[in-house]
C-alpha cells in the first residue's frame, strides 16, 4: 500500500466509537472497555506513522502505551471491584455521593 492514510482514518473512526461508548454507556465496565478501544486506536495511528517515517520510535511508543494500559486496567478493575463491594452497583449514575 502506498499510503498510510486509510489506517489513520480507521484509527480516527475507532477512537470516535470509543468516545461515544464513554459518553453513552452507564456501566463502569463498559466505559472502561471503551477507553481501551480508544487507547488501541491511538496505538494504530502510532504504528501507521512509524510505517510512514520508516522508524521504530512509533512502535516503541505503542509498546509503552500497552504497558501503561495493562497497569491502568489492573488498578481500574480493582477500583470497580471495590466500588461494587461497597455499593452493589457498577452504574456510574449510582455513584453520585461526591457531588456538592
Amino acid at each position: 500500500m502506498d499510503t498510510v492514510t486509510p489506517f489513520v482514518l480507521l484509527s480516527a473512526i475507532l477512537f470516535a466509537l470509543g468516545l461515544t461508548g464513554v459518553l453513552v454507556r452507564r456501566n463502569a465496565l463498559m466505559i472502561f472497555m471503551s477507553i481501551e478501544l480508544m487507547l488501541n486506536s491511538a496505538n494504530l495511528a502510532f504504528v501507521a506513522f512509524a510505517r510512514q517515517w520508516g522508524r521504530l520510535d512509533g512502535q516503541m511508543f505503542v509498546f509503552f502505551i500497552m504497558t501503561v494500559a495493562a497497569a491502568e486496567v489492573a488498578v481500574g478493575l480493582a477500583l470497580i471491584v471495590t466500588i461494587f463491594r461497597a455499593r452493589r452497583s457498577t452504574n456510574v449514575d449510582d455513584l453520585a455521593q461526591l457531588k456538592g
Binding site: M1, T3, V4, A12, Q52, G54
Partner: peptide, 18 residues
Amino acid sequence: AAYVFITRAAAGPAPAET
C-alpha cells in the same frame, strides 16, 4: 480528524522503505 489527517498526513513524506 479526517480533515487533519488527509490534509496533513498526505503532505508528509511518502512511506519509507520498511
